[in-house]
Simulated assay, not measured.
Amino acid sequence: MRFTRITLQNFRNLPLVQVTLRGRRTFLCGQNAQGKTNFIEAAGYVTALRSFRGAETRALIALGQPQAGMAFSLEHEQYGESRITVTLTSQGRDVMWEQGKVTRLAEFIGKFPTVTFSSQDNQFLRGSPSLRRRWLDLTLAAMDASYLTSLQAYTRAVAERNMLLKQGGRDAGALDAFEHELAGHAVVLFAKRAAGVQELSDLFRAAHAKLVPEGEQAGLVYSPDTAVTVREEFAALLVKNRPRDTLVKSTERGLHRDDLEVLLNGRPAKQFASEGQQRCLVIALRLAQAAYFKLKCGLTPVLLCDDVLGELDPSRRVKFWNSLEGDPQVIASGTSLPEADAASWQVLTVEDGKIL
């Protein structure tokens, strides 16, 4: 899969840009706060119809404008030449492609896979478990519509249970109903997360090995809050925890408390890895995500590299390029041109919301 043309109107600080992408390597060059990241953010939107920054729809629309528009032309191994249009308003989004209007995210997510490498990824190791859960959920949901359906239903059930807890938990019948539904989806999600992390861990270990000196070994471990294998057992745990949950007005146990642990040579990376080692680990996680997408859907994802390769030393940058398989399209950004093989890049200059 590759983008051939991207048109944006009133998307963040980009009033109107029309970019034809040639070849497999495009580099956006410009100073900070000119619009490079915004362009990459828009390109990544086609995978899950959401910003990799986690921004709300309203934040994507230029200040003072009622709506924003995005149009993408792509070459796709399964759908041929495809065109996707997205209209963003303060009320939501409207998405169209050759198959018709997109009414359910599960019918669209993951069909146009991209993987975004961002400087924000450095928080993956040091940040809260919610960052790691979000990455895992987006990765698995992009390739498994049933995972997304179960996750959405689980999240709704937790929200409904929390609402009842805030009301004092007096409606035992309603709590029973939501806990029964919650437990059913939890069993499905637990099994899919455990299997998914096992596959991702193997891909992560292989990707990391291509970036680092021999002797460093990475690992990815699923750390569930509760092992949910039997629906009735988890439902009973929720009943047992009702008094405490009512006090704190929140569901304190469950898959919404899960975490992932990243290891380096068998030890927690956030405690023992150096800055350079941590950068390689998060890049390897993104490479593993790309490999997982290709494994599951047979498509080579587009790689969107937002000013991250400059953080690697020259030898690790060379290893990064050598590690890429399947000749993916790469759209990268930075404040200076790539040091090596510059002739192979289509270079675009970004200045004050204009891309030339």
Results as ranks from 00 to 15, higher is better:
104 R>W: 00
247 L>D: 12
344 S>I: 11
341 D>E: 14
12 R>H: 12
196 G>F: 04
346 Q>E: 11
106 A>M: 04
179 E>P: 01
281 L>P: 14
167 Q>I: 02
182 L>H: 04
220 L>T: 05
296 K>E: 13
254 G>I: 02
169 G>T: 13
323 S>E: 05
111 K>Q: 13
209 A>M: 03
5 R>C: 12
273 A>T: 04
349 T>Y: 06
54 G>K: 13
3 F>T: 02
293 F>S: 04
79 Y>H: 14
294 K>E: 15
347 V>F: 11
326 G>K: 03
212 V>S: 07
177 A>V: 11
86 V>Y: 02
93 R>V: 03
254 G>Q: 01
110 G>H: 03
276 G>M: 07
310 G>D: 07
15 P>W: 09
278 Q>P: 10
187 V>N: 03
159 A>R: 10
135 W>H: 03
296 K>R: 15
105 L>V: 01
80 G>H: 05
127 G>Y: 02
7 T>E: 10
133 R>T: 09
124 F>Y: 12
354 K>C: 14
19 V>A: 14
139 T>W: 08
61 I>W: 11
29 C>N: 09
99 Q>N: 02
157 A>I: 11
355 I>K: 03
222 Y>K: 03
335 T>G: 08
210 K>F: 06
182 L>W: 06
163 M>Y: 14
60 L>A: 01
3 F>W: 05
40 I>F: 00
110 G>P: 01
126 R>Q: 14
116 T>Q: 11
143 M>T: 15
321 W>E: 12
80 G>W: 08
221 V>C: 04
303 L>M: 10
173 G>Y: 03
252 E>H: 11
262 V>L: 15
302 V>N: 06
308 V>Y: 03
162 N>F: 00
269 A>L: 11
45 Y>P: 04
9 Q>P: 07
143 M>Y: 09
73 S>V: 11
198 Q>I: 04
90 S>N: 14
123 Q>T: 05
142 A>D: 09
252 E>Q: 15
330 V>W: 04
8 L>V: 06
224 P>V: 06
126 R>Y: 03
116 T>R: 13
245 D>Q: 10
106 A>P: 00
347 V>G: 03
308 V>W: 02
317 R>P: 07
241 N>A: 13
134 R>Y: 00
91 Q>Y: 08
17 V>I: 15
237 L>I: 06
31 Q>H: 06
258 D>T: 00
202 D>A: 05
335 T>S: 12
87 T>I: 10
17 V>T: 09
260 L>D: 08
160 E>T: 15
188 V>P: 00
155 T>M: 07
51 S>L: 09
190 F>K: 12
45 Y>C: 04
304 L>Q: 09
264 L>K: 00
67 Q>Y: 09
218 A>F: 05
107 E>R: 15
241 N>G: 01
66 P>A: 02
260 L>G: 02
223 S>K: 07
57 T>R: 09
142 A>V: 00
261 E>Y: 00
76 H>M: 08
222 Y>G: 08
121 D>V: 11
9 Q>D: 15
32 N>E: 14
355 I>Y: 08
37 T>M: 05
324 L>F: 01
69 G>R: 09
326 G>P: 13
198 Q>V: 06
25 R>T: 13
113 P>F: 00
258 D>M: 02
306 D>S: 07
32 N>Y: 09
160 E>W: 06
